[in-house]
Structures are given as C-alpha cells and as structure tokens.
Amino acid sequence: MSLDAETVRRIAALARIRVKDEEVTRLQGELNHILAWIEQLSEVETEGVEPLPGAMRMKLKMREDVVTDGDLHDAILANAPDRADNAMGSFFAVPKVVE
C-alpha cells in the first residue's frame, strides 16, 4: 500500500494539519518509507489471534454517581485564547460555525 499525494492531503485534512503544497511530496516520501517498513507485519501469521488493545489485565473499575468536580469556571477558562463574556455568563469563542 502506498500513499499518493491526494491521500496525503486527505489525511492531513482529517487530522486538521495544514500542509503546504511544497511539503506534500516530501511527506509522501517519508510516510511511504515508514509504511513500507511497517509492511513487514504482514508476514506474521495472526489467524485466530485475539487483538490486544492494551496490556492491562484487570477489570474496569467504576466511579460512584456523586458530584465531586466541575465547579471550576475560572480555572476552565483561565487559559482560553478567546474568552467571551455576556449576560448569560462566560464562554470559549471560536469563528462562527454554520450548521
């Protein structure tokens, strides 16, 4: 499997990373080099092997349904690059989104 320039652009758009036109060819080369190297995995016989997403062999613990967190208005907004305040309260602001 090898990526073409269009795929590089599509992947970059999915990841929301701006890639300049002049970077595409270089990235395409680098990514294909890495992918070709990864390709050796196809030699491994994995028929019937259960996939392992993580090494942890324990049961998921659960939290009780108690409000212990969240009243953090100022701390939540303290690092905001664009914060908006109005009569309703305080918000994060972003360029207008059209649905």
């Binding site: 795929t7 890495i34 992918l35 990864i38 995995l41 196809s42 491994v44 994995t46 392992l52």
Partner: peptide, 28 residues
C-alpha cells in the same frame, strides 16, 4: 509525521491491515 501516520492507519479501509493487525501481533 506521527499524527499523519496514526490518522492513516486508523482510516477507513486501512484499519484492519494496520491497526488491527498490530493489535494481534501485540498479543503475540
């Protein structure tokens, strides 16, 4: 580079060949 590789190996059509395969090898 790593974000792009990661995005690619999870993307539709490639998940089984890359990510799922890697999870199986991880099990081995």
């Amino acid at each position: 580079r790593r974000i792009l590789i990661g995005t690619y190996v999870l993307s539709a059509g490639y998940y089984d060949a890359y990510y799922l395969k890697a999870q199986k090898v991880r099990a081995l």
